[in-house]
Amino acid sequence: MSRLDHHVAAVQNKLAFDRFLHALAWTTLVVSILGLGAVLVYEIFQVYPPKPMIWIYSALGAAVLVAIVYAIWRRPSARDAAVAIDDRLGLKEKFSTALFVRTMKDPFANAAVRDAEQTAQSVSLRKKFPLSFPKATYGTATIVAAAFLTFWLMKPLDLFGKEKAKEKIARQEIKKQDAKKVVEQALAQVNSMPKSVADNEAVKLAKADLQKMLQAPVKDPEGTKRSAAKA
């Protein structure tokens, strides 16, 4: 590979990577917007997808993949890179002309190629093609911060009463457990009675009732407590 080709290939890769970074900034911006939307949906409607972390990683992976595909698709050609070098170094189309006429056999073409090759030996592209910072990154950072603050500070609105329903079920479950404990305590008291008392028909009936209550699902916690107390 000649020095000219080396310069052109290096600039091709640099420009392609720059396009990848800009594409990645835009794809992550889209992902962050979707993420903010998902956070708002969760806070307002209490709805979220199963295994949310898998969705997050998948979205980020898709963002990177799309950026890579875009960078490959829009990778500048050798002529584009040569034009960029000419423009950046002020070479008056020397490199791009050499690439265009390289396959020609006339003296002018040969002279143009030799001149470009000689110039390629003496020029340096160091710091001539710095990577540009994607401005879309600012938008991504802002939206990610907004999503985080929304998730952290915003209280769920519970428009459909799902949280209240969950709390009601939890309270009811606690009451059922308390009722079960009351029945267990009453049954323990019956079992601890002396044999002479335990053989009493009323005690046997009470014990049987308590055992039935203990085995049956609790539908009315307060009623179960009262029944256990009576037994």
Rank of each mutant, 00 (worst) to 15 (best):
P50M: 09
N200F: 00
I33G: 06
V47A: 14
V66P: 00
Q118F: 12
L153Y: 15
V123P: 10
D178V: 10
T97H: 01
A120V: 08
A179S: 12
K94G: 01
P50A: 12
L205P: 04
K155I: 05
V39F: 02
L210G: 07
L40Q: 12
P76I: 00
L149T: 13
G223P: 11
H7K: 05
V41Y: 09
E184R: 13
T142Q: 06
K105P: 01
A170R: 14
L36I: 03
R226D: 13
K219G: 08
A71Q: 11
A10V: 05
L24M: 04
K135Y: 07
E173A: 13
I33E: 10
G37W: 07
D209M: 12
E222A: 15
Y138H: 11
K128H: 15
S227H: 10
R171Q: 08
K230Q: 11
I33Y: 03
G161H: 11
R88T: 14
L24Y: 02
T97Q: 03
P52Y: 05
D158I: 04
W152T: 12
A228G: 07
P50F: 09
L205M: 09
A59E: 14
S196E: 12
P156N: 07
F95E: 02
T150A: 15
A10Y: 13
S96I: 12
K168I: 02
L29G: 06
K207F: 02
L159S: 02
Q121K: 05
K92Y: 05
P50H: 14
H22I: 04
Y70C: 04
Y70S: 10
P217F: 02
Y57D: 06
L60W: 12
T140L: 00
H7D: 09
L99N: 07
I143G: 00
L65D: 04
Y57C: 00
L91M: 08
A25C: 06
F133R: 06
R88L: 11
I85N: 02
K181R: 09
A78M: 14
F133T: 04
L131A: 12
D80P: 00
R102T: 13
A71W: 09
A147S: 10
T140I: 01
F45H: 12
I72T: 01
A23V: 06
D5P: 00
A136T: 09
Y42G: 03
A38P: 10
S96A: 15
M104D: 10
K162E: 09
A208N: 08
A216S: 11
V197E: 09
F133A: 03
A188W: 04
P156R: 03
W55M: 13
V66F: 03
G35L: 14
V183Q: 07
F95Y: 12
A10G: 04
L153K: 15
A98N: 01
A98G: 04
M213W: 07
A67R: 07
K207N: 05
V69D: 03
V123G: 12
S132L: 13
L214E: 08
K162T: 11
F151Q: 11
K168E: 07
V31M: 14
L15S: 02
K219M: 14
T103P: 03
P221I: 02
D80K: 04
A62M: 11
G61Y: 03
F108Q: 00
F108H: 00
T150Y: 04
R79F: 05
W26M: 14
D209C: 05
L214N: 09
D5Q: 15
